[in-house]
Amino acid sequence: MRTGQTTIAAAASVRQRTPGVTAWLLMAPLFLWVLLFVVAPTLIMLVYSFCERGTLGGVVFKFTLANYAAVFDATYLRIVIRSILFAGLTTAVCLVMGYPVAYHIGRSSEKWRNILLMLVMIPFWTSFLIRTYAWMTILKSEGLLNSLLVQYGLITQPFEMLYTPGAVVLGLVYTFLPFMILPIYTSVEKLDNALVEAAFDLGAGPMRAFSKVIVPMTSPGITAGILLVFVPALGLYAVNDILGGGKVDMIGNIIENQFKGNARNWPFGAALGIALMAAFGIAFWFTGRRQATVQTS
């Protein structure tokens, strides 16, 4: 993807002209959208995070730092760390499972490629919640999987699968796998086969060709895939509630509870949200910088 951007940038520099009125008009909806739905809500959240709790929910406009102090309380830090571990594990499993699939799709003939891509997208045709509930009927102790295993004598007692951390990771991987496959696929599709052949011709084994040529060339897709999986996996709490039995809170549950649960503590919910955004921002900036240094070196 990065190579794509540089070619566009190069083309623009050849023609070298400032955007005209039409260009601005075409861009206006996007700017407006970002302003209304990204900038404005974030600013509201930022303001709320420094306010005091209102009795019926809402906020009282009195400045306080207490909400941010509470974010760094051991209770919530522990939950943040656990959420990061779950999201990280999900991302790693998605990468290991998704990369070969994406590579295979990207390398197959055009006819097959479209069929395979379609198969990756089909789950999106059904609501995510319904698909997650479907997993419940598969995993429950009198469910599909347990009855099959018992019937074929592989196990004697139903095996506890639903309401375990494993079920949560399974649900998350299932939900986010396409978000790993699709960006990697776009990178693989653009991969110049001549370079891979050159690596082999120059004596590189399959492992070496993969790690020194294929992975670096598809790294934009890998980075995009990791971001597209990790960030939403960290915030998604529905899978945790449905397949995990709500036993272990994720950071998303905690934020939701501040608005829709007993506490009615909007300012604290806003502070948690802002803190999480800040953490992402810093992580994103670091990866961006690392990539830049890798490329220049």
Binding site: T75, R78, N257, N262, R264, N265
Partner: peptide, 19 residues
């Protein structure tokens, strides 16, 4: 119970994370 609800929320969250 007003403000006490915040404490209740925190205690239960804490105890759940413990388990």
């Amino acid at each position: 119970i007003g403000e006490q609800a915040v404490q209740i929320d925190k205690i239960v969250t804490d105890m759940k994370a413990e388990g």
